[in-house]
C-alpha cells in the first residue's frame, strides 16, 4: 500500500501522428492533496487529465492510481468538466443526475435518492432535486456537477477548468465550496485551470505546465493557511509572492507578446 494516491510516470502523448502534446510528465500526488495544474492553453493540461481519467490512453509512460495501473476508467473517480450545460443530462432531474454514478454501485433507488439529497445539501442545493439542470443558474449547475462527482465517494476528484465559465462572484463562492469539501472530506483533487490566481488560492500545491510539448516547468508548494478567505488570503504577502512566481513560470520573461 502506498501513501501516494496518484503516480504519473514518464507520461507522454500525441494524437495520431501529430506533434507530441505531452512529454515525460512526472508527478506524484499524495493522499488528500489538492494539486492545481496551471498553464497556458495548448500546454496539454486537459490531455493529462484525460490520461489520468482513463479516457485517453497515453502513448508513453503510465498512470497508477492507488497502486493500480490506469488502463481503463478507474473505479471511484469523480470528474467535473468546465462545460456543465453539456456535462449534465438535461433529460434527467437534478436528483437523477447526481445519483447516476451510484447506479454502477448497484444501489437501490431509495438509497440513491438519499445519497443524492445528501450531496445536494453538501453543495448548498438542498431541495432542488426535482428540478431540471437547465432550470438552474450556471453556478448552481456546476454545483450539481460537483455533487454528482462526489456522489460515488471518489478516491480522486478530477476537475477540468471547472469554474472557467462562471462570473467572478459565483466562481469565488465555488472555490470556497471546493476548499471546504476538500478540508472536511480529505479529498484528493487534481484541478486544472488557466487562472494563476485561482491555482494559488485553491491549491495545496501548484504544478505549472509549459507547452511545446507539455512538460512540468515548476512544482511549487502553497504555504498558506488551510482555511482561506477570498479577501484576506489574497492580500497576504505569501499569496502575492507565490502568484508572481507562478506567473513567471507560466509566462517566462521575453515570451510575452505586447
Amino acid at each position: 500500500m502506498t501513501a501516494h494516491m496518484l503516480h504519473i510516470d514518464h507520461l507522454g502523448h500525441r494524437y495520431g501522428v501529430g506533434p507530441p502534446v505531452l512529454a515525460d510528465i512526472q508527478l506524484t500526488v499524495p493522499d488528500g492533496q489538492l494539486v492545481t495544474l496551471v498553464g497556458p492553453s495548448g500546454c496539454g493540461k486537459s490531455t493529462l487529465l484525460r490520461c489520468v481519467a482513463g479516457l485517453t490512453r497515453p502513448a508513453e509512460g503510465r498512470v497508477t492510481l492507488d497502486g493500480e495501473p490506469v488502463d481503463r476508467v478507474p473505479d471511484r473517480l469523480g470528474v467535473v468538466f468546465q462545460d456543465y450545460s453539456r456535462s449534465l443530462f438535461p433529460w434527467l432531474t437534478v436528483r437523477d443526475n447526481v445519483s447516476l454514478p451510484l447506479r454502477r454501485q448497484g444501489l437501490g433507488r431509495a438509497r440513491r435518492h438519499e445519497e443524492a439529497a445528501l450531496m445536494l445539501e453538501q453543495v448548498g442545493l438542498a431541495g432542488t432535486g426535482k428540478q431540471h439542470p437547465w432550470q438552474l443558474s450556471g453556478g448552481m449547475q456546476q454545483r450539481v456537477a460537483l455533487a454528482r462527482a462526489l456522489a460515488a465517494r471518489p478516491a480522486l476528484l478530477l476537475m477540468d477548468e471547472p469554474f472557467g465559465a462562471l462570473d467572478a462572484q459565483t466562481r469565488e463562492d465555488l472555490e470556497d465550496l471546493l476548499l471546504r469539501l476538500h478540508r472536511e472530506g480529505g479529498l484528493t483533487v487534481l484541478f486544472v485551470t488557466h487562472d494563476i490566481d485561482e491555482s494559488v488560492y485553491v491549491g495545496d500545491r501548484v504544478v505549472v505546465l509549459a507547452p511545446g510539448p507539455g512538460h512540468v516547468r515548476a512544482d511549487l508548494p502553497v504555504e498558506l493557511p488551510p482555511v482561506r478567505d477570498q479577501i484576506a488570503t489574497r492580500a497576504l504577502p505569501e499569496f502575492t509572492e507565490l502568484r508572481a512566481e507562478v506567473g513567471r513560470a507560466v509566462r517566462p520573461a521575453g515570451t510575452a507578446t505586447p
Binding site: 476508467v73 473505479d75 468538466f81 462545460d83 453539456r86 456535462s87
Partner: peptide
C-alpha cells in the same frame, strides 16, 4: 455531445450504457 459521453464514461459506464443513457 462528446462531453456528455465522456461524462458517462468517466463514471465507469461502458459503451452500451453510453448509447442507451
Amino acid at each position: 455531445d462528446p462531453v456528455a459521453k465522456d461524462t458517462l464514461r468517466a463514471f465507469g459506464f461502458g459503451r452500451f450504457a453510453v448509447v442507451l443513457r
